[in-house]
Amino acid sequence: MSDLNSSRRGARDAAQRLLAAHPSEDPFAAAFKATRMPMLITDPRQDDNPIIFCNQAFLKLTGYTEDEMYGRNCRLLQGPETDPDAVRRLREAVDNAHDVSLDILNYRKDGSTFWNALFVSPVRDESGEVIYFFASQLDFTNIKSKETELAEARRSAEEEVTRRTKDLSDALQAKTMLVHEVDHRVKNNLLTIASIVKLQARLSEDEVVKRTLFSVLNRVEALSTVQRKLFTSSDLGRFDVADFAKDLIQDLVGALHRDDIRVTTDLAPVLVPSVKASALALIVNELVVDAVRRGLSDGGGEIHLQVKRKNGHFIIRVTDTTTPVSVNPEEEAFGRLMLDTCAKQLNASIERYEDGPRTDVLVTMPVEIMKD
């Protein structure tokens, strides 16, 4: 106790010397005492760098009296939850006589806490020796509380976003599985229908019936190819017409086993909504089958397939060069009807040019029609 009293006497003596150097009319002394910002002064030349002066704002903030503060080290304001790293930074700055600015959790006399924006600066005499440390405090507990509330709100929001994202991901996965299952069943049903039609065509002895059934089979297989493409696609909502067209022309021409048919293509990825896939697939199918029917299957020739975007439009073009053969008028009429019906569904226009052995059919659709 005698050590504390001795320290307090030393602190008061130092305070008196400080006040003597700054009489009451001194603007510094008047400002120091009257300001609403908590401030204190310590004396590093005394043992444990005690507080030798503090203003009323500091006493009001901490709840201590002058007698309780004089001669005490500022660590009096530290407590169990004070950040050791902040204490270390403060101690190192004092030991090395450096300025330091930090936020630190301090304790009042009654044990309540406050967040202290602390600034400590050494005061030197003319020779450069540190004779005082000046410290100012700012209670920013309310701001810190708001930061904590915002951090908690942000954490809660992030957790909610994570939860909602998981729910949406689970729902999307379930939907994807369902769509895949539906596509799988549709594909299997189409394959079953194709098998039945194929079997009936092979058993039929009537050439007209046989030809008609194979015509139906061809279109069913085209739709089956569409379902296979959708089923294996990573994007269930989009259908690549160019990719489908490439496979279809290879399958149709390859099935003829003719080495005198030359196939060329000009294809660029064109993604369209999957709901338009069937109509587009049948358009490509009708164009290629028409070229095969008009002479490619008999005398060979050339066929060129183009699928791309051009001048703000989406085009499908089939150009063939072959020696024309007689075509069944009913098959040709039905093929034209299928083509016109599908084109009408897509608001597409059809242009047909014939020049001797060369036939050019162009189907044009506005790009906007291909959007959802």
Rank of each mutant, 00 (worst) to 15 (best):
L337D: 15
E332Y: 10
F334R: 12
V318F: 03
H313C: 05
T319M: 15
E330T: 14
E332M: 13
V325W: 03
L339A: 09
K310R: 13
I316L: 11
N311A: 10
G335R: 15
R317D: 06
N328H: 07
P324Y: 00
K310V: 03
I316C: 08
C342L: 01
L337N: 11
L337P: 01
P324T: 00
Q306D: 07
A333H: 14
L305H: 06
N311T: 04
L339P: 01
T322Q: 15
R309C: 04
R317Y: 03
N328C: 06
Q306H: 11
F314T: 02
F334C: 10
V327S: 01
S326P: 06
R336E: 15
I316A: 07
F314K: 00
V307L: 04
P324L: 04
D340V: 01
E330P: 02
G335L: 08
L339S: 07
G312P: 04
M338V: 01
K308G: 01
T341I: 00
I316T: 03
F314E: 04
H304Q: 14
T321Q: 14
D340L: 07
T322N: 14
T321V: 08
T322Y: 12
N311R: 11
A333S: 13
G335W: 03
E331L: 09
V327C: 02
C342I: 00
G312C: 01
T323F: 05
T319I: 14
A333W: 11
G312R: 04
M338N: 11
E332N: 13
R309E: 15
E332S: 14
R309Y: 06
R317I: 01
N311D: 14
V327L: 02
L339W: 02
V318W: 07
D340G: 04
R336I: 00
V307F: 05
R336M: 10
E330D: 13
L305P: 08
T323I: 06
V318K: 12
P329S: 11
V307G: 02
T321S: 14
H304F: 06
H304W: 07
G312E: 05
S326M: 10
F334Y: 13
V327M: 07
I316S: 04
I315K: 02
I315M: 04
T319P: 10
T322R: 15
Q306Y: 02
C342H: 08
D340A: 08
E332R: 14
D340M: 08
L337C: 06
V307A: 04
T321P: 08
R317K: 13
N328I: 02
G335F: 05
D320K: 10
G335V: 05
H313I: 02
T323H: 11
N311H: 05
L339C: 05
L337I: 00
R309D: 09
